[in-house]
C-alpha cells in the first residue's frame, strides 16, 4: 500500500516534468500544454492504455489533468456500448463530473470567502 504513494510520486513528477519541458523548451503557453495533456489522456484511453496506467500509478494517473481526458472518453465509450453512437454524447460527463462540479462550486465559495491579494 505505502509503495503506491511512492509510485504515484515518481509517475506524477515525471508527467509534470514533461509539462515543464513543453513550456520551457518548446516555448509553448501553459494553456496549450494543458490542452495537449488532456488530448493525450483522451487518446491513451481511446487505445485502452490508460486503464492499466491507473492500476499501475494510482493517483499518479488520476491527479494529473490527463485523467480528465481519460474520464471523458471512458464515459463516452461506456455509454456508447449500451445506446450506440448517441451514447458518446450522453456519457461524456458521467465520470468527470466530480472535477468540474467541485471546481465550479468551490470557485463560487472561494469568491464568497476570499478577496484577491497580489
Amino acid at each position: 500500500m505505502v509503495i503506491s504513494v511512492f509510485v504515484a510520486f515518481v509517475v506524477g513528477g515525471l508527467i509534470c516534468t514533461i509539462g515543464q519541458l513543453i513550456i520551457d523548451v518548446f516555448k509553448q503557453t501553459p494553456a496549450f500544454m494543458l490542452s495537449l495533456f488532456v488530448v493525450i489522456g483522451s487518446v491513451l484511453d481511446g487505445i485502452g492504455l490508460y486503464e492499466p496506467f491507473i492500476d499501475f500509478a494510482g493517483a499518479g494517473a488520476t491527479v494529473p489533468i490527463t485523467s480528465f481526458g481519460n474520464g471523458l472518453v471512458h464515459g463516452a465509450l461506456k455509454e456508447a456500448e449500451q445506446s450506440g453512437l448517441i451514447g458518446v454524447v450522453i456519457g461524456m460527463f458521467q465520470l468527470t463530473s466530480a472535477g468540474i462540479t467541485s471546481a465550479i462550486v468551490f470557485g463560487v465559495i472561494g469568491a464568497l470567502l476570499f478577496k484577491p491579494r497580489s
Binding site: 500500500m1 492499466p52 499501475f56
Partner: peptide, 11 residues
C-alpha cells in the same frame, strides 16, 4: 495486490 511493476496488467 500484484507486485508494483506488474500492476500494468493486474486485471
Amino acid at each position: 495486490i500484484i507486485k508494483p511493476l506488474k500492476q500494468f496488467s493486474e486485471q
